[in-house]
């Protein structure tokens, strides 16, 4: 979980949503594996220095999206259904690319140009 905590919050957006995103990224990266226990609400609140209610709300949101589940008295766990994780990965990839395309269009950059530039940069970095 340490990786989740590394960056600070963007305080202009609801914090619980940012916690949700951090957990999602940790799941995609594999920092949190299927069946892993999430930190308790209190632990995470102390780690992130946020209100426990905010963490609670984030956990509820994660559960609602099917990414985690609760075992009574034991806490919150990452889903063991690989399909759900795969779906999340796909969704996040698409979201990212859509965002990039959106931003590119704002400077009149076509998708083809975007792909071209991407490849150029990849080659630069490889060499």
């Amino acid at each position: 979980m340490t990786l989740i905590l590394s960056d600070r919050f963007d305080e202009n957006r609801p914090i619980y949503l940012q916690i949700v995103e951090k957990v999602k990224r940790a799941i995609i990266r594999g920092d949190l594996k299927p069946g892993d226990r999430l930190p308790s609400v209190r632990e995470l609140a102390i780690m992130l220095r946020v209100n426990p209610n905010t963490v609670q709300r984030a956990y509820q949101e994660l559960e609602r999206e099917g990414l985690t589940f609760t075992r009574r008295g034991q806490g919150n766990f990452v889903t063991q259904d690989p399909a759900v994780v795969e779906e999340l990965r796909e969704k996040m990839r698409r979201e990212l690319v859509r965002r990039v395309i959106q931003e590119a269009s704002e400077i009149n950059m076509s998708v083809d140009e975007l792909i071209k530039t991407l490849e150029e940069i990849r080659n630069e970095q490889a060499s």
């Binding site: 305080e11 202009n12 609801p14 905010t54």
Partner: peptide, 14 residues
């Protein structure tokens, strides 16, 4: 607090 952040698109501090 969260609703205010969303409505104003800003932090409570802002």
């Amino acid at each position: 607090a969260d609703e205010l952040r969303s409505q104003h698109d800003a932090s409570i501090n802002s």
